[in-house]
Design a protein around this nucleic acid. Sequence first.
DNA 1: CAGTGGTCTAGACCACACA
DNA 2: GTGTGGTCTAGACCACTGC
Lengths: 243, 243
Amino acid sequence: MAPEKPSYRPLHLQIRDLLRARIASGSWPAGAPIPSEIALAAEFAVSTGTIRKALDALVASHLIVRHRGRGSFVASHSRHEALYRWFSIEPDDGRRCFPDDEVLARERGAATQRERALLDLPPDEFEVLRLFRRRHVRGQAMIRDVLVLPSHMFPGFDWPGAQHRFTTPYEYYEGEHGIKVIKVEETVKAELANSDDAVLLGLKAGSPLLTIRRIAMTFDDRPVEFRFSRVRPDGYSYVKRIS
Amino acid sequence: MAPEKPSYRPLHLQIRDLLRARIASGSWPAGAPIPSEIALAAEFAVSTGTIRKALDALVASHLIVRHRGRGSFVASHSRHEALYRWFSIEPDDGRRCFPDDEVLARERGAATQRERALLDLPPDEFEVLRLFRRRHVRGQAMIRDVLVLPSHMFPGFDWPGAQHRFTTPYEYYEGEHGIKVIKVEETVKAELANSDDAVLLGLKAGSPLLTIRRIAMTFDDRPVEFRFSRVRPDGYSYVKRIS
DNA sequence: CAGTGGTCTAGACCACACA
DNA sequence: GTGTGGTCTAGACCACTGC
């Protein structure tokens, strides 16, 4: 006999996915209030306990936030807690602080073979946006990076222009282009500083350097941004906590 | 008015902490079955829903595992899923595989100032165990590391000897010394290969190298092990996924 | 004050493992 | 079978927010 597909999924999972779809589709935009437990229970004709289990899962995956007495809301990158969520570099003295951006250059061009693959560009799309930055902390150049974006997902892209309204690129993607980054994958390597690193980060060529390649994804693992960072290693570490 | 301490904590949190304490104290050792929901509900005189919420939290923090029809059990490092939980290095070709250990040396000696601080040694303890290893993958030397342990927590320490019974040090700590690692913190840096790296990993001195400093902790953030790893960067990356 | 989410209860029914 | 955990219900009560 051929294996049967599961004919049943728990209600709370079905509801969780339906609610997630509403957030993914943009019908519930970032920051918007969502219906109360009671309203949702009525809409789906289930008990509040089942709704609660679905909402708890969305809280766990950072898709909504809930406040007793106020209601539930679609999570947003503009919340302060979101700032450090994706940023894994910490000074060795423990005093975390978020770097300032300096946009060095911006270009629009044909995607390389590698960029096409990393960003999973559809066959009829060939253009990417590239944003070259330098990032400072306490006045010192700490990171230089390049952000590569699929052009077709960001019509009218204007990050340096919108920088006064949004504190991070992800907040800008979300607020201005309706694209919510929900997952990133970073691979870290050690390399040697080249002459550009020497100039931009004030290092000696040939000194060691941390490099980070990041793929940022939205719903359904769709790539949104590829980022390549080169980090000066003196005084800073890449940190991962596992529990 | 002086601020009042909270006179009330939710029952499910209190019960979660009580159950966690039983695991921490060793009265419920790794792998042991724990009482059923109904039995726990009777013991604490609460409803099964409250017990369930406490147990769900313990599942989320990997302290217990539950199987429908069989029961709930204290989680153990010997489970296969635990193998990769703490290991963040992945080959660039995607084919993950766990390295073999080769113990190069073992020593027992006085802790350095730095080791004392990292391991939070009590004032009357001065001795550490050091284990020097090399780790291979597909026949190639990939990592060399040193493990530093507080001597007083591991009486009769015999890792290379017990290597035929336990697959990883953490499984050995748990099975033989009753010490369960539940959390690690890693800081990653880029450095240059020295002459020892050149010999042990087959690199050129001066080539870039990933270094990882790890603190492994048991309950109450008590340090159990300090580990310093030096990783050959060609073909491997340190990976972190955030969602 | 009404409305929200957080806690807690006391059940019922089901899928599954094991003897 | 019996016993386990997983799902789901229909309530009650409380703490908190904002009007």
